[in-house]
């Protein structure tokens, strides 16, 4: 022991290591952004971007050679689903027209989500084993703030957990620490979306606190509730793949596969601002009204 205490090199390097560890931890606990880390993150941004692109390319080849059979099957399933969705789209277009007409007829206010979006690219994934976080190439310089939701065209990815000058880190929804209020689009059955250490490895998460007699089934689309959460309402989260009843708590737990493809995530959008506001009748497309009027007159005739 005395040998180490007399060694100047040991003492100096130990002091440096202790200072780096303690200062970073204290600043993180205080919620202060470490300026040295911030600088490091900003300087290494181009290197991260290049590494991310190389890894993406390598991963593409790996998927091509390892998962070709799976991709062929998936392609067939998607074609079938596409045909089914086209039918559903035609039906929902008709329903939307009727809805437009009735809202105008009964003078009901329209509530819409008004979002401001910023596009971003994933330039890295977190280097620890128990969290799934992604580094994006947008930071405080681009108006990004902690807690902003991140989405893709498919659905919710997660929310911004840390913001640097030109980068930010996103915690995904399958992260064990996250919890989001959600409900089933079809029936309105609600619950709390949480991460699970076991399911995380398969890219899935759980909905807990669903009433035992709630109307929810496998295949139901899950969307965000928007109540007291950082996420706006009606954002697609995923679909139910399994239901597990708990006899003790008389509650249901549902396993959910996120709609956003978290594996191989590339381009995302950050919702920088959102508000729910009544839709003004002035904003309604006049041609839509004419169509519904014409249809209405045809029906009355």
């Amino acid at each position: 022991m005395n040998r180490f205490l007399k060694n100047k090199f040991f003492l100096i390097t130990l002091a440096v290591a202790l200072t780096l560890s303690l200062s970073a931890t204290i600043l993180a606990v205080m919620g202060v952004n470490d300026p040295v880390r911030n600088l490091f993150g900003t300087i290494t941004l181009p290197v991260r971007w290049c590494a991310s692109k190389i890894a993406e390319g390598i991963d593409g080849y790996r998927v091509y050679f390892n998962k070709i059979d799976e991709l062929v099957e998936q392609n067939k399933a998607l074609r079938d689903e596409n045909a089914e969705l086209r039918e559903q789209l035609a039906e929902s277009e008709l329903a939307a027209r009727q809805d437009d007409y009735l809202r105008e007829y009964l003078d009901l206010p329209w509530l819409v989500n008004d979002w401001s979006l910023t596009d971003a690219t994933v330039i890295g994934r977190e280097a620890s084993s128990y969290r799934t976080t992604y580094t994006l190439n947008r930071g405080s310089l681009h108006g990004i703030k902690k807690g902003m939701p991140v989405v893709t065209a498919q659905g919710v990815v997660g929310s911004v957990a840390e913001v640097g000058l030109s980068y930010c880190r996103v915690v995904s929804i399958i992260e064990t620490a996250s919890s989001v209020g959600v409900y089933a689009k079809r029936s309105g059955a609600s619950g709390l979306l949480v991460g699970d250490m076991k399911l995380r490895a398969d890219g899935m998460c759980l909905i807990t606190y669903i009433e035992a007699d709630a109307d929810i089934k496998v295949g139901d689309l899950i969307v965000t509730a928007g109540t007291g959460s950082i996420y706006p309402a009606e954002l697609t989260v995923g679909t139910v793949v399994e239901l597990i009843p708990d006899d003790v708590s008389r509650m249901l737990t549902a396993t959910v596969r996120p709609a956003a493809e978290l594996e191989g995530l590339g381009e995302v959008m950050i919702i920088t601002d959102y508000q729910i506001k009544p839709y003004s009748y002035d904003d309604i497309d006049p041609s839509l009204g004419e169509d519904t009027d014409a249809e209405h007159s045809e029906v009355t005739e």
């Binding site: 970073a24 993180a28 880390r37």
Partner: peptide, 18 residues
Amino acid sequence: AGWALDAYSGSTVALLPL
């Protein structure tokens, strides 16, 4: 390496330099 890893991953407990 420890410091770079902590800075890169943004972990709260920066134990890795030590």
